[in-house]
Design a protein around this nucleic acid. Structure first.
Lengths: 239, 239
DNA sequence: CGCCGATTTTGAATCCGGTTCAAAATTCGC
DNA sequence: GCGAATTTTGAACCGGATTCAAAATCGGCG
């Protein structure tokens, strides 16, 4: 039965190989120009073999987007383990998310495309399932901070479940990415730095939720210090 | 020169005809199955003629998404003209947005797809320009309420420009749509009614911004009453 | 009205790239 | 080493977006 194991490992490795190749091709030629044949060729496999792993191009896109998510989970874990107040950690998730998307705009673009009905529904059910499952840890990490905040008295749920309380912050970050990535939209509306604004609005939201300690969002210098500190202590100074 | 005018009118009409046909086909067969040839056929025109209006399929998608936006602008205008406090009107925009997307999920799906880099960048520059311009009124309507709120003392900008202040609410609603439209995501996270939560979070955000009069978001009965009233007085009772 | 050059429309042909599947190669158990 | 089972291969297929040369229509002019 060890043979079966090996084979499974080999197949899993090849899947990574394909995904890496796809990622690279996307960075090189853009999401638009990704071609299945190119992916296969780059790995020195036949197209047919590629299709044993991915039911369709859409299936591959969703798989790739799912794999990318792991990165984000790692960042979130680091924030959750940070020695800081619960509110600062909650804020930290948003900063992590922001930095992740800033550093890897192509990841966001892909995730956005993959969550589009056209692509999402064309992926295999199994693949969708896996993708959803991969996003679960993100939610749990954030919720655990909410729960801690409630335990230590920083926050009152007021009838919300922890996951429901997270929804606002989650939607805020997601929506900001959307806005930031439509070319020309910010220029037209004369908005300079959407992410800095997002962080400020998140603080407004946290104030609205009465998550202690209260913070004055209009104190932009203090806000920038918070971000700096987070970068120093959690992300090894990478901005 | 009147002949030139007539011709221009005819062409514009035909453009509407094509867009209507595309809309109908999408409702019928889904976004996924939209075919240029079908659109042309449905209007009794040759494919080539269709391509005189739209540089590509993507171009048509963006055009359609732009045309759909007009609907939303109308709703927003109604809200802006509503005899109610500034905060309630701000809240009303979110409700309008929510109802619009609920009633026309396919509009959202399309807008989401159209704003994807793959589609957006494949549309003609001219088309993108037009699309951005069409979204401008939405922003201006909302900003005007913010400005009124500042004038009448309901709100302090605290260093933000009106459009920057709107960004939070805007991102919140956009992000909520994203979340609500990924199949299986809410089920997995055990969230029942994302839009009701969104409205609640918006109230938290408005509280955080100290937009008067303060409202207690945990009073869900009062929240529901607000929505009901809005539907009655602004949307002719259509929920 | 009829003619001619300009403009518009047409749709069959082209092109592109995702997907399939029968044949070839490889693996595995004996 | 053999044959069945499994895996890999890539040329062929196919659907659908896009093109473009020919046909039709239009508008002005004698």
């Amino acid at each position: 039965m060890a043979i079966r194991q090996r084979r499974l490992r080999e197949v899993a490795n090849r899947e990574c190989l394909f995904l890496d190749a796809a990622r690279e091709l996307i960075c090189q030629d853009g999401l638009l120009n990704l071609q299945m044949a190119r992916v296969a060729e780059k790995c020195d496999y036949a197209v047919g073999t590629l299709y044993q792993h991915f039911a369709s191009k859409e299936d591959l896109l969703v798989a790739l987007s799912t794999a990318n998510m792991q990165h984000r989970v790692d960042l979130f874990r680091r924030v959750a383990a940070w020695k800081a107040g619960t509110r600062d950690r909650m804020f930290g998730f948003a900063v992590a998310d922001m930095m992740f998307v800033r550093r890897h705009p192509e990841h966001f673009r892909l995730a956005q495309l993959a969550s589009t009905e056209v692509v999402w529904n064309a992926a295999s059910p199994q693949r969708r399932q896996t993708s959803l499952a991969a996003s679960r840890p993100l939610g749990r990490i954030v919720e655990s901070v909410v729960e801690e905040a409630v335990r230590c008295g920083d926050l009152k749920l007021r009838g919300l479940k922890p996951n429901e309380l997270c929804l606002g912050a989650w939607a805020l970050t997601l929506g900001t990415h959307d806005i930031a990535h439509i070319e020309g939209l910010l220029e037209q509306n004369n908005v300079r730095d959407p992410y800095r604004l997002m962080l400020r609005h998140l603080q407004h939201l946290l104030n609205g939720l009465e998550w202690k300690p209260r913070f004055d969002p209009s104190n932009t210098a203090a806000l920038d210090r918070k971000v700096k500190r987070l970068c120093r202590e959690v992300f090894d100074g990478e901005l």
